[in-house]
């Protein structure tokens, strides 16, 4: 065989999984998957030591393509599954891939409680403002007034700010980035993975085929350009007026604090007993 130079991502993709993937043309999920893989590659994590867990939705189809321990669970339930894995094997690096509907609607309760426990799981929320897999119904992050197949007259629901929600619920690392800023995403995910505690990274994503079409946002490239032109780094917001900030996506790390992690707290609890090492399977 010819000596084809391999990209970093190829090392982490499954060779026995039948491609192509499920994502539509113009979808930004693949770009974000690339950022996640490159962050892991930079940290030089062992593939056996990573468990990637997802719920249901477009972004949640991600684990099947990567060569880690992978688990594709029920709608909204990725975090409790991940909690079980992390508790049982605290040495595993557990990454949860979820979407806006998966994390904040059906899985909202699990999301806030995982934040509260500060269990060492990195949750990456790919927020495309829509239920893509089911064909475009409004989600808790669909902007008020926007169209979805279940809001043909415009969405009347106020929206969730995923980062505000995570911070208020007690997550100890909270950040937002966009799929367009792939290198920044890579960097932030790397920091989130290195953080000991519950980390949330919201990646603003593009769903041109459904959300974009319903709301006349253009195709994949146009939606990427929109992310570039309508987002501002956290630092820049200091000098901006509320009027200037209107409608802007603020990117950056909003919160990074050290607090006792949940598995450590449990280990502390256990330390009062003479637990034999062999009990830790």
């Amino acid at each position: 065989m010819a000596n084809i130079p391999q990209k970093v991502v190829h090392k982490y993709l499954r060779h026995n999984k039948k491609f192509p993937h499920v994502w539509c043309p113009g979808c930004s999920n693949g770009t974000t998957l690339g950022s996640i893989i490159r962050a892991i590659a930079e940290l030089n994590y062992d593939r056996d030591g990573i468990t990637m867990v997802s719920g249901i939705g477009c972004s949640s189809r991600m684990p099947v393509y990567v060569d880690f321990n992978t688990l594709h669970t029920l709608h909204g339930r990725a975090l409790p599954f991940a909690t079980g894995i992390k508790m049982q094997k605290p040495e595993q690096k557990v990454i949860v891939i979820t979407g806006d509907g998966d994390a904040t609607a059906i899985g909202g309760n699990h999301f806030i409680h995982a934040c509260r426990r500060n269990i060492d799981i990195t949750t990456i929320v790919l927020n495309n403002n829509i239920y893509g897999m089911t064909g475009g119904q409004y989600s808790p992050t669909t902007p008020t007034g926007d169209r979805a197949t279940t809001s043909p007259y415009g969405n009347i629901d106020p929206v969730f700010d995923i980062c505000e929600l995570a911070m208020a619920a007690g997550a100890t690392f909270v950040a937002r980035t966009t799929a367009f800023h792939a290198l920044e995403t890579q960097d932030i995910i790397k920091k989130a993975l290195e953080h000991k505690g519950f980390s949330v990274v919201e990646v603003v994503s593009a769903c041109p085929v459904i959300y974009g079409r319903l709301n006349k946002k253009g195709g994949g490239p146009e939606m990427m350009m929109h992310m570039r032109d309508n987002s501002v780094p956290l630092k820049a917001t200091e000098k901006m007026t509320p009027e200037q900030l209107e409608g802007k996506i603020v990117r950056g790390i909003f919160k990074q604090v050290n607090k006792l992690e949940y598995c450590d707290a449990y280990a502390n609890l256990m330390s009062q007993f003479n637990v034999k090492e062999e009990a830790k399977k």
């Binding site: 079980g84 894995i85 049982q88 309760n109």
Partner: peptide
């Protein structure tokens, strides 16, 4: 856990990790 749904999911996760 926060509810019974989370409880069943957590035990499945733990079992997949060997418990």
């Amino acid at each position: 856990m926060e509810d019974e749904i989370a409880s069943i999911c957590a035990i499945i996760g733990a079992s997949l990790a060997g418990a």
